[in-house]
């Protein structure tokens, strides 16, 4: 009898934690999302589903922009992370763990602080642009801050380690003898990479995409620090609805819409790319 209870006791603390701090607020927010009223006179539950339609229609642009930024940032992190992960996994030698620590080093500095330091770096008269302007390489009114480039760049920078690590883990699990076998069977480096190494590392890319696309799309720090009015993401809108406009029902409705959209997106993505093939190679 005792043996049957033990596993449940083990999940009890974590489970309770999640129920109290995730499920309860979620239920509360779900309730708020269909209420009407204002912060002075109080909110009344009217089951007004139109809150969702209103929110979606009003902030359609920001939704699409967030998805676009998330997508662009994710593709960029793949492009930047793959070579790094490849190099550490196959050429890192005895110093692998040192390199991995270097990849993780930014995490020792606060997320906001890192983003703010980017603002200094990219400032119109900052250490990057001013010298370029001085030597006339870029025009005097050239700026990076408050542009899409700055926001997507910031997102890419902040989430890069979340792509490097899973790809590294996947590459690390590729048996070197399997790679040797491909060379033994007349592969060029290119054949070996495209037919063997890349397919076997796709599960890592798959996991990396999940770990970067979702937080990037709902991110608000990069857009608010590095972006301008034309770069507002849905995360910024939700923040504004809650903290500035005090329109809790609108904020809740937006949050739920975003959550649902991403769950559907991930589901479709997993169905399309997370095929048996990819996972089977990983499960070896």
């Amino acid at each position: 009898m005792r043996r049957k209870i033990a596993p449940y006791l083990l999940i009890l603390p974590g489970g309770l934690w999640l129920v109290i701090f995730l499920v309860v607020p979620l239920v509360f927010m779900a309730s708020v999302s269909t209420q009407e009223g204002d912060v002075v006179n109080g909110f009344v539950q009217t089951f007004r589903l139109a809150n969702f339609a209103d929110a979606l229609l009003q902030y359609k642009t920001q939704f699409l922009r967030s998805a676009g930024y998330g997508l662009a940032g994710t593709l960029l992190t793949i492009a930047l992370a793959y070579p790094v992960a490849y190099w550490i996994a196959f050429k890192g030698g005895a110093r692998k763990s040192t390199y991995l620590l270097l990849v993780l080093l930014p995490f020792f500095v606060s997320f906001v602080l890192r983003t703010v330091s980017w603002k200094f770096l990219l400032a119109d008269d900052g250490i990057l642009l001013q010298p370029l302007k001085d030597i006339g390489l870029v025009p005097a009114d050239f700026h990076v801050l408050q542009t899409t480039v700055a926001v997507v760049g910031g997102l890419t920078y902040n989430y890069l380690p979340f792509m490097i690590l899973p790809i590294y883990v996947a590459l690390e699990r590729v048996d070197p003898r399997v790679v040797e076998a491909s060379y033994d069977l007349y592969s060029t480096w290119r054949d070996s990479f495209t037919k063997i190494v890349l397919p076997l590392s796709l599960p890592g890319v798959f996991a990396g995409v999940l770990m970067t696309f979702v937080p990037m799309t709902s991110d608000y720090v990069n857009a608010s620090i590095l972006g301008g009015p034309a770069n507002t993401m849905i995360g910024n809108i939700i923040q504004t609805e809650y903290l500035v406009n005090n329109d809790y029902p609108a904020g809740a409705a937006l949050s739920f819409t975003l959550m649902a959209a991403m769950l559907i997106g991930i589901f479709v993505y997993a169905k399309a790319l997370g095929t048996e093939n990819v996972l089977e190679a990983a499960a070896r």
């Binding site: 399997v178 076998a181 060379y183 033994d184 592969s187 076997l200 089977e280 190679a281 070896r284």
Partner: peptide
């Protein structure tokens, strides 16, 4: 280099390509 040598190897623990089926493995070379 090994990919230009007319010898083939059977590896310890086989080193089969895990994401390919038997036919694809054999046809690889």
């Amino acid at each position: 280099p090994p990919n230009k040598r007319d010898v083939n190897m059977v590896f310890q623990s086989y080193a089969l390509f895990p994401h390919m089926n038997v036919w694809e493995n054999v046809a690889f070379g």
